[in-house]
Every structure is written in C-alpha cells, then in structure tokens.
Computed example of a mutant assay.
Amino acid sequence: MSIENTTPTEYLTPAQVREKIRFGQWKTNTSGVSSGYVQGNIVILPKKWADDFLKFCQMNPKPCPIVGMSDKPGDFMISSVGEDVDIRTDVPSYKVFRDGVFVDEVHDISNIWQDDLVTFVLGCSFSFEEPLLADGLEVRNITEGVNVPMYRTNIECRPAGPFSGTTVVSMRPMLPKDAIRAIQICTRFPSVHGAPLHFGNPEAIGIQDISSPDFGNAVTIKEGEVPVFWACGVTPQVALEQAKPPFCITHSPGCMLVTDMRNSQLAIL
C-alpha cells in the first residue's frame, strides 16, 4: 500500500503533496497538510503588469507578503520556493480572470500558460496556524475540517499603479485571552500576515454578517468567543478586480502551493 494512501496528510512531505496535486489526486483546500512547511497564495500576471503588482505588495506587506517569485518571465518552475515546483500543475485549484472578470476555475493551467507570465508566491495564514496549534490554541477551521472563512472589509490598501482595493481578512474565533496570545505568537511571522488586524466587532471593519463569509466556509463561534481577523492573501484578487489586467491567474481560496520552505525560516525570534 502506498504512502499516499496511508500517511496522514499533515505528515506528507511537500513533494508528496505536490505530486498528488499534479496528478489530480488532490483538488481541495490544503489547510493542515505538510505540517511545518510554508504554503503560498499565488498571483500570476503578464510582465507588463508585474512591476506595479510588485510595488502593490511592497506597499501592503500584511495582506501581500512576498515569499517567492519566478526568476524571469515565462518561468513555470519556481526554484525560489522548492525543488521541482511547477506552478502550472502544483496548485489544487486555480481561478482565471480576463479583464478583471473571473471566467474559469481549473486544476491545471498548462494549456493557457504564456511566455510573458510572472508568478508571485505570497505568504499564507496556514503557516501561522501551526504555531497557534503548538501553543495549545484551537484553530476552528481545522477542527471542523473546512476552509477558513474570509471576508471583504472596508480597510483600504495603499494603491500602486492600477492596483487598489480593500483588504480581505481570514477569521478564527477565540476566547479574548487566546486572541491576545495569538497576537503575541503571530507578531513573530510578518512574512505570513503577522499579527491580527482586528478582533471583536466585525462591523468596525465593514463586515455586516459574520455568518456569511465572502470566501471559504462559515465556522462555529461559541459563547464567550470573539472573531479574530488576520490580513488574507485573497486581498490581491480584490485588487485585480479593480485593475482589470487582460489576463491573470490566482489560486482558488484555500487551495495553496505547498512549498519546501519551513515555517521556522520565516519566524523572527
């Protein structure tokens, strides 16, 4: 019996996870897989748009922290984040946009790849979930086996060229004392969104219905808990909606690139 069928997903190596994805054996969210390794949000743009997007990320490092890029336009092997990482096949699900409009969701982008495309790998909140769990804090979306809930907010990003928009946040409910501990822990990980942006009243950041996330799945909020909100790597999708590049590709929410980088490499001690 193969390791792919017997090994719990948190113990699969990144290479094993990417192999399962590449051959169509994994098409869902990647929360909790390959414990200890960095997962990345993906944005792929034509070179003409890439420089302004790079500036947008540099000006908005909490929602858009860059952890890797393609070496040059057209490269689909992303050596900066791992060995044998093919960005065309190694993400479980991709969203395709034309002129800022979502047009398709696919599991392989080999047949639409272009020679001028530049790939950005952005830090993901899944990387800080591990130290939260290690400290004894519950991460509700993992407990309930669903994709983390994500919401559009009224928190404006700093614009760069054609890129602008508001911040998307991910939410994990916690007791207030645990929320404070989560802030302390996540401050050590600025490359994967860092400390939460807000906790408490969702309406203060423009969220009207906490039970209806814009992306991902709703989770249970128990009595005495408060919602805790982190900047989220889906934020670039809002910026792309505003900028309307003729062509771009992102990951589907929750469906990340599992890299060979260790979370500990991104920690500030």
Rank of each mutant, 00 (worst) to 15 (best):
I109P: 01
V148G: 02
G24M: 01
G68Q: 10
C157V: 03
D115I: 00
N263W: 07
F229G: 03
G194R: 02
G161E: 11
Q237K: 07
I66C: 08
T89N: 04
P176K: 12
V33N: 10
T143Q: 14
D51Q: 09
Y37M: 01
A134M: 09
W113L: 01
V228C: 13
D260I: 02
L122H: 10
G100R: 11
N5P: 00
G123R: 09
I180E: 15
Q237D: 01
D135A: 15
T89W: 04
I180A: 15
S191P: 00
D209P: 01
D90T: 02
I42C: 08
R88C: 13
Q265L: 04
A239R: 03
V81H: 10
P196I: 07
S164L: 01
D178F: 15
I183S: 02
V17L: 15
T143L: 05
A15F: 06
R152E: 07
T220C: 04
D75C: 06
H193Q: 03
H193D: 05
N41R: 05
G216W: 11
K48D: 12
K244C: 04
A134F: 00
E130W: 12
A204R: 11
L266Q: 12
P61H: 12
E241T: 09
M150T: 03
I44H: 05
F126T: 13
Q39G: 05
Q184S: 13
D108E: 07
A15E: 14
L137C: 07
N154P: 04
V38W: 11
V219N: 10
S125V: 03
V168I: 15
P196G: 07
F23K: 07
G145F: 01
K47E: 15
F97L: 10
Q114S: 09
I87W: 10
T220F: 02
I78H: 09
I44S: 05
G74K: 09
V118I: 04
P14C: 12
